[in-house]
Write a protein that binds this DNA or RNA. Sequence first.
DNA 1: ATTGACGGGTTAATGATTATCAATTACAAA
DNA 2: TTTGTAATTGATAATCATTAACCCGTCAAT
Lengths: 138, 138
Amino acid sequence: MHLRMTNQRERILQELQKSGKHLTADELFKRVKKVMPRISLATVYRNLETLSAAGIINKLEISGRRKRFDYDVSDHDHIYCVHCQRVDNVPLDRTSIKTPSSVTAHGYRITGFRLEFAGLCPACSGKKERVDTKIADE
Amino acid sequence: MHLRMTNQRERILQELQKSGKHLTADELFKRVKKVMPRISLATVYRNLETLSAAGIINKLEISGRRKRFDYDVSDHDHIYCVHCQRVDNVPLDRTSIKTPSSVTAHGYRITGFRLEFAGLCPACSGKKERVDTKIADE
DNA sequence: ATTGACGGGTTAATGATTATCAATTACAAA
DNA sequence: TTTGTAATTGATAATCATTAACCCGTCAAT
């Protein structure tokens, strides 16, 4: 099952790579639109789904609502800003995490895990001092 | 800042505790409705938000779309079934996870982390054999 | 040329959650 | 008690992200 590289599919992929960021479908749509004004948002969603299903890109489901997509498919974890929703990579030693035994996991057959850090990005950390109290009980 | 315990607020809390599960707003709504038929879904959403903001219950944002609420506010991680969405606790030693330094985390001020396991619950694991292939590339 | 699968664009629909708003209730001061 | 004020409720509309439906165009194999 190899997949056809259509113009829009390729452009979506290119823009994601070029950005070097973890973009939402909507953000990517805006970028691609600049170069392909007639592209549809549905096409972006469809192709992001197709591409991630094919393992070419990575679909991230971070806390909060919108999915983000990552050109980097290698194993790594993420950190997101609780204030501006920005997402960055966290190069971390994942080997420290021991998969719990089936017993402790109520008999589940474990297929994977996800580690995600939360915090304030440099920009938001600087701007807001009193956010700390709000973050504390979140 | 203490919060007023209204009838509906208390009942929502009670039902969540009684269930012993990780329920969605909607599931909880159905349960509470049996005993308070006039309660509104919005009231359930509002109070779950209020209660979790006050630290009385825990709001879980697991992969996927719907939020779930947990009566247990102690530090623990979760596992969810990729097939039926069920969520269970994972008693795990969280101390094994080292918070990355600010440097590796792009200068973030880290406030917390979330570890979440995915898998097939006993029920779904038994029923479906060929799900494995589907799960594999997800 | 014909067929048929695959994408694409447009638009409508869905599902979860949040916002709005008028009516009601709780509580504290008079 | 009465009254003023603010919080809370129920009903409903709105929002947001995502997906589905639909029809049309393109290209590759027949």
